[in-house]
Design a protein around this nucleic acid. Structure first.
Length: 683
DNA sequence: ATAGGGTTAG
């Protein structure tokens, strides 16, 4: 015969196995045959319902039933009811839970802890804390729940305070406590504290190290990884006797974050099991480390293996397309993104914006920005940066002001992009003003990287002495980017004396960096001191410094064509040379004079002109003119900064052929149209 | 009732 006891057994069996509705049906069944449910029945059905998401209707129904049945004073029943209330996503369900909690004549640890974790999960740490403080007999789970709540919501100080208190009142720390605290240290980059926890765990924990739970060790991998201690992370990983997917993903992202892409590739290959996270990490890892093609291939492989890419994977491939300048490919992926239904994904859209911008297409970037259903500070920063890189300094600042007026607080990245935007557009006084405001109004202390932008801004504008003055007074030791910015200013404005001084500093700091030699020799070349040019070149040779070869590329018919200086590899390069020769005649008639001083070599003038005319950017532009359909914008990408002569030449080309030409160099974008460049010769 | 792995902006 079916009696209450047998129903209860079945219901609790269903509930334990997450069959909430099956449990519910049995309960209704009981009522149909007029069996009176008891407190155990209610507890079981409710715990089944708690496993379902967001069943608000049954929640309220049960509340009434329970009150009618008179079992509301049974602690386990009320506990279960509270827990179901707290699983509902709507805020209006907090109040009945809270009220029930207040009305309970008797509460146990579970009651308190359930309510606390309910609030923690909603991110209301203050409410959680209030209840926590009112709890007299706190158990370890309660402490751990509070700590993990603080950690998850970024309240590191509070997590530490709670941890200290827990320790001082003599509650035994368990692996939950350690895991949360170690991950707190990882998030905040607190290596010292993290290491102390690790050591403390080794010294005092009764559980021997090999038997520590996986989460503790996984958290340790992340701790060392986030603190840039790859060796330590690797050691933890290698010494684990059992590893799960989380361990593998953790060590994988550890390798990627320090740029060890070969190790990452190898680990990825060795993984017996992968999930969406694995793929996404690997794809963006490739993208960030200059392996764009591999990132794209991996997305294909993912599809082939029947794994549906998540939005993070898309963010990764957009980053890849951005660095490759693969606009067509990026567009195709954009439509795939929409087909997969991720168009409102924040991270994918942010990456998408940058993809369009870095492929030379600010308009589409702006379009993405405007149509995003929700934006965050990353989106604002990306759009401001896009405008700045393309030389639209005024628009960048307007957007920045709009951001402020919408109440979005700028962060340190925002100011980096704002300062660059000013620098590219020659907005000196504006840049200086924002630099001041950064600290005084927004409380962001400028970092050495902000100073480098300021130096760049002043240096480009010819305010070399002011820039030097800033360096002398700033609260940092000048690092190479600071000196490089100043040297570039000296180069533009022909300040030889300061240039030599700065070059000396750089020779001390980074003797292997080719840029210093190139800039210094250009300074000498500007004023015709060919002996010094030769001396610098010799110095380079003696020290074994190789100049990074210039290379440019262009996408034609979904294929990327790469050109090197004096290219002889590209199958159609001979046509390109011929075309350039013809075009050169027309350009010279229009007034183009090759600027020979940009050649590094001190050779005969005629040869100089020849060697200049074969810079990779000219080849790529010419190839685009030959191959792309009439009227299409030519988009060329270059690894180094565009040379002065090429810049002039492309201006003339744009006029001679009546085409728009966009060149992305190592620093920024140049939009050539009708003989002019968007940078206003200011780059 | 409590724990571990990710993304996008420079």
């Amino acid at each position: 015969m079916r009696d209450v006891v047998s129903y209860n057994a079945m219901i609790s069996g269903y509930a334990r196995n997450a069959h909430g509705y099956a449990a519910l049906n049995l309960f209704l069944d009981m009522k149909r045959i007029c069996l009176q449910p008891d407190d155990f029945t209610f507890t079981s059905v409710l715990s089944g319902l708690a496993m379902l998401v967001n069943d608000e209707k049954h929640c309220q129904q049960f509340h009434c039933e329970i009150v009618k049945s008179g079992v509301v004073s049974v602690v386990s029943v009320s506990n279960a009811l509270i827990s179901v209330y707290l699983k509902c996503s709507s805020w209006s369900f907090l109040d009945p839970a809270r009220q029930l909690f207040g009305e309970m004549p008797e509460k146990d640890e579970l009651t308190w802890t359930t309510v606390i974790t309910g609030y923690v999960r909603r991110g209301d740490l203050n409410a959680a804390k209030e209840i926590f403080d009112g709890m007299v007999k706190k158990i370890d789970v309660t402490w751990n729940a509070m700590i993990s709540g603080y950690v998850h919501h970024g309240f590191i100080m509070e997590a530490f305070e709670t941890f200290k208190k827990m320790f001082s009142v003599g509650v035994t720390l368990d692996e939950f406590t350690y895991t949360s605290m170690i991950s707190a240290c990882a998030n905040a980059g607190l290596l010292k504290h993290g290491k102390q926890l690790h050591a403390f765990l080794l010294r005092t924990d009764p559980i021997p190290e090999p038997e520590w739970s996986l989460p503790v060790k996984n958290a340790l991998i992340t701790l060392y990884s986030k603190c840039e201690k790859l060796d330590a992370a690797r050691r933890v990983f290698d010494e684990m006797s059992i590893r799960d997917l989380v361990s593998w993903n953790a060590i994988l992202s550890a390798c990627i974050s320090v740029g060890h892409i070969d190790d990452a590739r190898q680990l990825f290959g060795r993984m017996a099991e992968r999930n969406l996270l694995t793929w996404a990490v690997m794809i963006s890892g490739f993208a960030q480390n200059g392996c764009g093609e591999e990132a794209l291939k991996l997305l294909n492989q993912m599809n082939k293996e029947g794994v549906c890419p998540c939005d993070y994977a898309f963010a990764g491939v957009f980053t890849a397309c951005a660095s490759l300048g693969a606009l067509k490919h990026g567009r195709q992926l954009h439509s795939q993104l929409i087909r997969f239904g991720y168009e409102s994904s924040l991270s994918a859209s942010n990456a998408l914006m940058t993809m369009y911008a870095r492929c030379g297409n600010v308009e589409d970037a702006h379009c993405v920005f405007l149509t995003m259903p929700a934006v965050d500070s990353v989106s604002w920063n990306a759009m401001i940066a896009a405008l700045g890189q393309h030389g639209y300094g005024v628009q960048a600042l307007e957007l920045f002001e709009l951001m402020l007026s919408e109440g979005i607080l700028p962060d340190r990245i925002t100011f980096l992009t704002v300062l660059s935007a000013c620098s590219h557009a020659g907005l000196v006084s504006e840049g200086c003003r924002y630099f001041e405001l950064m600290d005084s109004l927004y409380g962001i202390a400028p970092g050495v990287d902000h100073y480098a932008r300021l130096i760049d801004l002043l240096g480009r504008a010819g305010k070399i002495l002011e820039a030097k003055d800033v360096i002398d007074k700033m609260p940092y030791e000048p690092d190479p980017p600071i000196w490089e910015a100043l040297l570039a200013g000296c180069r533009i404005h022909g300040n030889m004396e300061m240039g030599i001084f700065v070059a000396e500093r750089l020779f001390e700091l980074t003797p292997q960096h080719d840029g210093t030699y190139v800039l210094l020799s250009n300074i000498y070349a500007d004023i015709g001191r060919w002996n010094d040019v030769a001396r610098v070149r010799q110095l380079m040779k003696d020290r074994g410094v190789k100049k990074e070869p210039g290379c440019s590329w262009i996408e034609v018919a979904n294929k990327v064509h790469v050109f090197l200086v004096d290219d002889s590899v590209h199958p159609e390069v001979q046509y390109v040379y011929k075309f350039l020769e013809m075009l050169g005649v027309k350009m010279k008639k229009m007034g183009y004079v090759p600027d020979i001083k940009y050649a590094l070599h001190d050779v005969e003038s005629e040869q100089k002109e020849y060697s200049l005319s074969t810079h990779s950017e000219k080849l790529a532009v010419a190839f685009g003119l030959l191959k792309l359909p009439m009227g299409a914008t030519i988009r060329v990408l270059k690894n180094l900064r565009i040379c002065g002569d090429c810049h002039t030449a492309v201006m003339f080309m744009s006029k001679a052929v009546g085409r728009e030409i966009v060149v992305r160099d190592g620093k920024r974008f140049h939009h050539f149209r009708d003989g002019e460049c968007s940078c206003g010769n200011y780059w």
